[in-house]
Nucleic acid binder design. Sequence first.
DNA 1: GCGATCTATGATACATAGATCATAATGATG
DNA 2: CATCATTATGATCTATGTATCATAGATCGC
Lengths: 83, 83
Amino acid sequence: MKQLARTPRDIGHAIREARKAKGFTQKDLAARSGVWQETISKIENGVASTKLETLFDLFAALDLEIQVQPRSKGSQNGLEDIF
Amino acid sequence: MKQLARTPRDIGHAIREARKAKGFTQKDLAARSGVWQETISKIENGVASTKLETLFDLFAALDLEIQVQPRSKGSQNGLEDIF
DNA sequence: GCGATCTATGATACATAGATCATAATGATG
DNA sequence: CATCATTATGATCTATGTATCATAGATCGC
């Protein structure tokens, strides 16, 4: 399961998906990551721009990592060679 | 050119690489992204945890995007099935 | 529908990221 | 070496992200 992200909102979605995929509640994730449930709620909803530090705390708790790559051409879905 | 990132420092490296690959100075990137040269310097050196917003400003100017994915097992280099 | 769990929201306080200016340090080049 | 471009550092101010507590709203099982 890979998720492209170009906006804070995209990141929020990816986190929510990963959290649910693991069967965690926000409170669970809070406990595992050290980030508060309220903060997680905001992040998942893209309400606020997050600090990288916080993001990586969440990623660690969710066993996620990110890959920095050139923008895939012509689409938002991460598939290349659409045209 | 894909760069794994699990820490703010990793992100800084990726940004510096991408910037140089495009032949931009920090000042160039500042002009294109709206982020100040001084701030870019700090980010590239992993001195400070960045805001996602700022990060995506830089990514946009560098034609980068990120992909959120499960941590690759057993290594830091993004290759799977090492063992 | 009720109660319990889960998520969102509002307020306050504090820490810190980023803008901004000045300047120092470093690096490349004639 | 001297100069110019590039990058780093230091200070101040402002904006905002996060912790924290309280609670409202939503969701789900019974």
